[in-house]
Amino acid sequence: MTVQKIENMVGALALALSDSFMLATQEQAPELGPAAAALALLGHEPGMPIERLRRALGLSHSGTVRLIDRLVAGGVIERHSSEQDRRAVALHLTKSGEEKCAAILAVRQQRISCALKVLDPHELEALGKIAEKLLKNQVHNLDEAYCVCRLCDAAACVNCPVSAALDESKAAQKL
Score class of each variant (00 low, 15 high):
E168D: 12
A165L: 05
I104P: 04
A38Y: 02
L32K: 07
C157D: 05
H44L: 03
S18R: 14
K100M: 06
C152P: 01
K100S: 12
H122V: 05
E51P: 00
V72C: 10
H44Y: 00
L142V: 12
S81M: 02
L135F: 08
R55T: 14
D167H: 12
M48T: 13
F21Q: 08
A172L: 12
T64W: 07
V158G: 00
L93N: 03
C114E: 14
S18N: 13
L91S: 03
N137M: 11
G74A: 09
P49Y: 12
E168Y: 02
D120S: 04
A165F: 04
L127H: 04
A38F: 01
T64M: 08
L105E: 06
A103N: 09
R86N: 01
L175S: 11
A37T: 01
A56L: 04
L13W: 10
A145I: 04
N137T: 09
T2D: 09
G75H: 11
I68P: 03
C149A: 06
P34K: 04
E99W: 03
L41S: 05
A90L: 09
Q138Y: 12
P30M: 07
E123T: 01
A12F: 04
I130E: 10
T64G: 06
K129M: 08
C157S: 05
R108W: 08
E45I: 08
R79L: 03
E144Q: 15
R86K: 04
L124N: 08
Q110K: 15
T94F: 05
L166N: 02
L17A: 08
N141Y: 03
